[in-house]
Amino acid sequence: MNKFLELLKNNVNMDDLFDALTITWQGMAGIFVVMAIIAVLVLVFAAVSSKKK
């Protein structure tokens, strides 16, 4: 494991790697939040329209 981390440190731009990890969690969180908000709105709208009927 230590050897692998050493290899990673020597060959990979660690700043870019940390940035990529940050973009990954922020990106996935952002997409899930937007999709969840839309899903909830659709559910609420469907519930309201079925009550009106």
Binding site: I31, A36, I38, V42
Partner: peptide, 9 residues
Amino acid sequence: PKMFLFGAA
């Protein structure tokens, strides 16, 4: 609407 989550994943 549950399917929205699959698109995200």
